[in-house]
Amino acid sequence: MTATIVRKPPRPRTRRPVWEEKPTLTGQAGKAVLLTLLVLGVLFPLWVILVTSLSSRETIAEAGGLVVIPKGIDTSAYETILAGGAVTRALWISTLVTVIGTAIALAVTVLAAYGLSRPRSVGYRWLLAYFLLPFLVYPPLVPKYLVVTGLGLKDTIWALILPPAISVFNLVVVRGFFQGVPQELLDSARMDGANDFLTLARIVLPLSRAVIAVVGLFYAVSYWNVWFDALLFIDRNDMYPIQRVLQSYLLAGQAPHTSGGTSGVTMPPTESIKMAVVILTVAPIVAVYPFIQRHFIKGVLIGAIKG
């Protein structure tokens, strides 16, 4: 009987071993400076944008553009853009795409991952190859565009939801996790007469909450971030997701393809309104992220090793 010993990676060290040299002062200082710069490099722009979006017109004029040090809180920018118009509509559409898309994508991925988790089932090798091949060969742009338009999906949210509803990477991650579910549990479910659907729902899924959360986050983020698919498939201004509206607000001078995208606003947006749109685009990601962050290192790693 061969034991199935899964060697756990050693925990990261938390104390300096006795044999190691004392750290040098310059080394420590260099590390501190590097890491501080790194953290500030991410947090500082977020801070400036947040503060500017909450600043009054006068504060912004005084600062000459962007505000670094807050002076009072003024939510008028948010009130303006959330009162209806292009941004409000785009937020709704993005929310709709994200919620429906994540639900569909998770369902498709979980089912396929379970269906492919059992070597020696019918057609296993062929099906696995079929599902993994798109990982190497990307669907080409032009024919994909023709397929989606040919199916009449243009200017519907389904053009944004269906094509990315199965990601091979996520499939591999989930499948790897399912294959780690102890065999005894599955056998006992079968003994009790559970079919595969029941086993998946009652045994496998409750054990896989962490990986489902991680993969769900990946899908949700990619749906929230959808921009190019919207450029391809959505021509109507009132169907734009938030990323396209953000683009026309912030980068309008840079990307004339979307000129006329901001039908709800006639005057050029003020600095605080622009920054408020950035914050509203970033907010859902920043809000969800800390809850799932601790899971995903594990989840991604399982996928990386098994894949």
Binding site: F131, P134, P139, V147, D196
Partner: peptide
Amino acid sequence: DWQLLVMVAPGFLLLLVFSYVPIVG
């Protein structure tokens, strides 16, 4: 194994329509 095949079907169709047809296309 028919239940496993049923489970795989939605993903199979999505890949067929949005990956394989374009590749052939």
